[in-house]
Nucleic acid binder design. Structure first.
Lengths: 337, 337
DNA sequence: CTGAAAGCGCTTACAG
DNA sequence: CTGAAAGCGCTTACAG
């Protein structure tokens, strides 16, 4: 029933190959000096027995478990997923597995999970938040390399990887300008979020360097379609002149698109619309399909893993690395042939 | 720097409590007979030293790692997420952590991952697919309890947990009938998918038991908004009379809603629309908000974990457990006060 | 190049 | 109730 070799250990291999336990170990670990002949015998024995080393025992001796604890703040949030996927991807390159757990936004639970994870001797810890604001640090008392992903640590002596929201705002705005727009409105998300503020700042800074003024002051609300619709109505009611709208999220943008359609304002001919997130189900399905900024969450996750071992490679030192966004052009900003 | 107790082991605790290593172990493990007095001393010693048992060593001896391998077929698919969340939730109740990995739809990679996971001595294996069709079985050669979630195993001697698509079709259709509709059309997804076929079957069976006929034969296409729009156009062009549409997914339903709106057909007054998935971002944001069937993925994930230890509790035996859907009423089927 | 021995940190019969 | 000993399955100085 069992996997062939599930119950065979190194001792069995050594016996079959007629060598000592230690020689068998060395033969299989390549880095030790063993005659080619005996190495061959051991490897052959291992294969005929279907030997698979017990990583638990190995970990105990070499003091490395080949696992990393990944603590997500809210697994159910969709945003965490691509980050997790990037983490998994980068980890699997090193043959390391993530031990996954969900803190559910509960700091007490988070601390409990850390203890559990540490008891399981994880080689590192990655915290994945669900927004880009700063979060409390665990300080340097954890005893293993630690990285904060998406939500950055409030402490500059920690390693964090987050989004470059300022660049996101710049990129979106520049694209609008590059495609010939000059009266641009910005419908942002919740004002307290750094994602909102930084994207708005990027927006304003690019306008300034292009000698343009915003169509109106950046408007803050929330991240919903409803807010997108309401904001457009407000724009219209206030008689603001605009030929483009930079929305801080795809959901907002979809609401904007809806309302513009309802008002018979043609997109992109009369007004161009760009969103942020490149959330496929929204961006690709809206009419017209929505141009957006991809936040490269996968890459963010991968970078988090790399930062984990930043002691080993040439280190940039602690602090926050910001992943830039990428423009994904669809039909809401340019007329495609 | 290190966590207090990160480097203290049971030997240290025993020394401080002035007992033997074995007594210290027993005192901490509660289930052995130790005098209350010495137990107290040991526990106190453990606390003052901040002792944390090394689970790796513990696992090695008791032959249980407190981990379960979770192999996802495609981490990036959103659907897998709530299942994973349910798995994590149920596992964490037992203080077990999932070792997560992504097979990326590659069978060879999947087999490699299994070996890795087994080498790490996982106590069980859960495979999470991304659709409800059957998938190849790994047979009973894995040596640890195994459960297939969402995508069920083709072998009836395996444990699988999936969706009750037939019930989903029934539930949606019955709701439409209960709210006074009688000319119901069904816009389904891709014909080859069992999810499409079984939901359509449920649809037809409920109509039959209510002495109703479908407005037209179930229409198969894909799972997209575009298909939803196209299907409505076809309905209209063919002059089909209908007062309700059961859509096999929320995305399809959103396309349907769009087109009905465009054609100035009022929802829910003239036509009721119901979807499947209860995908918040779509269902809650559409206009009117979409009534849908929640597939209870969290519950599915939790059930998968329970099936893993089904040997222990009263066992229903292997085979496929089907999780029923739940009706979530919004505004697209009933006029709310 | 090879092997005996100690050790990683725990648990659990087995004696006393 | 307590402790000495063996063992879980590996790795790695240390001798030879």
């Amino acid at each position: 029933m069992a996997f062939r070799g599930d119950d065979v250990n190194l001792r069995d291999v050594a016996a079959l190959a007629k060598v000592s336990l230690s020689t068998a170990s060395k033969a299989l670990n390549a880095k030790f000096d063993v005659s080619e002949q005996t190495r061959g015998r051991v490897i052959e024995a291992a294969e005929t027995l279907g030997y698979r080393p017990n990583m638990l025992a190995r970990s105990l001796t070499i003091r490395k478990s080949g696992t990393v604890g990944v603590i997500i703040n809210d697994l159910e949030r969709n945003f965490a997923l691509p980050v997790l996927s990037g983490v998994e991807d980068a980890l699997s390159d090193q043959n390391i597995f993530p031990l996954l757990c969900d803190a559910r936004g509960d700091e007490v639970r988070e601390r409990l999970l850390i203890r559990e994870l540490l008891a399981r001797k994880v080689d590192g810890l990655i915290f994945i938040g669900h927004q880009t604001d700063k979060r409390p640090s665990h300080g340097d008392s954890l005893g293993v390399p630690t990285v904060y992903a998406y939500a950055q640590s409030e402490s500059e002596t920690d390693y964090s990887v987050s989004i470059d929201n300022h660049q996101v705002g710049e990129l979106a705005t520049q694209h609008l300008i590059d495609t010939g727009r000059s009266q641009i409105a910005h419908i942002s998300g919740e004002a307290p979020h750094s994602a909102s503020r930084d994207r708005a700042a990027g927006f304003l800074s690019v306008l300034r360097s292009n000698n343009l003024k915003p169509a109106t002051r950046p408007m803050f609300g929330d991240w919903s379609e409803g807010w997108g619709r309401a904001a457009v109505q407000s724009l219209l009611k206030r008689d603001v002149h605009f030929d483009a709208i930079f929305c801080a999220s795809d959901q907002i943008a979809r609401g904007v698109l809806d309302m513009l359609h309802h008002e018979k304002i043609s997109v992109p001919d009369t007004v161009a619309v760009i969103g942020v997130d490149n959330w496929e189900v929204i961006a690709a399905n809206s009419r017209p399909a929505l141009t957006s900024i991809d936040l490269n969450f996968q890459r963010l996750g991968r970078k988090a893993v790399h930062q984990l071992s930043s002691d080993l490679v040439q280190d940039e030192g602690p602090g926050t690395v910001r992943i830039p966004g990428t423009l994904v052009i669809r039909d809401s900003t340019v007329v495609r042939s």
